[in-house]
C-alpha cells in the first residue's frame, strides 16, 4: 500500500522540518516511482508545509515526476552533444509516436516519457534510454523500430 510506504518513510524523518523536504521527496519517488497527490498531502501534513509549496519545490527540479512510470520508460537526452546530433528530432518523434509530452504516462500505463539533460554517454549521441537500456546514435527511424518492438512484445504477451 502506497500510504503505508510513505508513512514508513516519514517515520524515518521524525520531527523533521522543511529542510528534509527534498530527501523525503526523493525517497518517496524511489519507493513509489512517482509523487502521487496522496503522498504530497501526507508529506505536507508531516512537515506542516502547504501542498502548493511542495509542488512548487518538486516541479523546480527535473527529477520529480507526478505520474507513475509506464511499463516502458523512455528517457530522451537533450544535453548539448545530443542536441548537436539532432536529439530534438528524436524527441519530436517519440512525442508524436507515443502521443505523450515529457513527464506524461500513457493511459494504459504502457509508455512514459522523460527528458533528461545528460546521461554521460555523449560519445553515443543522440542517446535514448528505455528501462535502463541504452540505445546509441538513435535516428527517428531507429526510434520507430524501438517503439515498434516494444509494442510487438506487448502484443505477444497480450491474452487472446
Amino acid at each position: 500500500m502506497s500510504a503505508q510506504t510513505v508513512e514508513r518513510i516519514l517515520t524515518q524523518h521524525q520531527g523533521a522540518s522543511r529542510d528534509a523536504l527534498i530527501p523525503i521527496l526523493q525517497e518517496v519517488q524511489e519507493a513509489e516511482g512517482y509523487l502521487s497527490r496522496e503522498a504530497v498531502i501526507q508529506i505536507s501534513k508531516h512537515l506542516k508545509l502547504p501542498a502548493s509549496k511542495i509542488y512548487g519545490v518538486a516541479t523546480f527540479y527535473n527529477q520529480f515526476r507526478f505520474q507513475p512510470k509506464g511499463k516502458y520508460h523512455f528517457m530522451v537526452c537533450r544535453g548539448t552533444a545530443c542536441h548537436v546530433k539532432g536529439s530534438d528530432k528524436v524527441l519530436q518523434t517519440v512525442m508524436k509516436q507515443l502521443k505523450l509530452s515529457p513527464g506524461q504516462t500513457s493511459r494504459d500505463r504502457m509508455f512514459s516519457l522523460e527528458v533528461v539533460a545528460c546521461m554521460g554517454a555523449c560519445g553515443l549521441a543522440p542517446v535514448v534510454n528505455v528501462n535502463g537500456e541504452f540505445y546509441a546514435k538513435v535516428s527517428p527511424r531507429k526510434l520507430a523500430q524501438i517503439i515498434q518492438s516494444c509494442r510487438e512484445k506487448e502484443a505477444v504477451n497480450a491474452p487472446r
Binding site: P50, S52, K53, Y55, G56, Y61
Partner: peptide, 10 residues
C-alpha cells in the same frame, strides 16, 4: 497564511 499558490516549474 494560506499559500494556495506558489511558483511552479523553473
Amino acid at each position: 497564511g494560506i499559500s494556495a499558490i506558489d511558483f511552479v516549474n523553473r
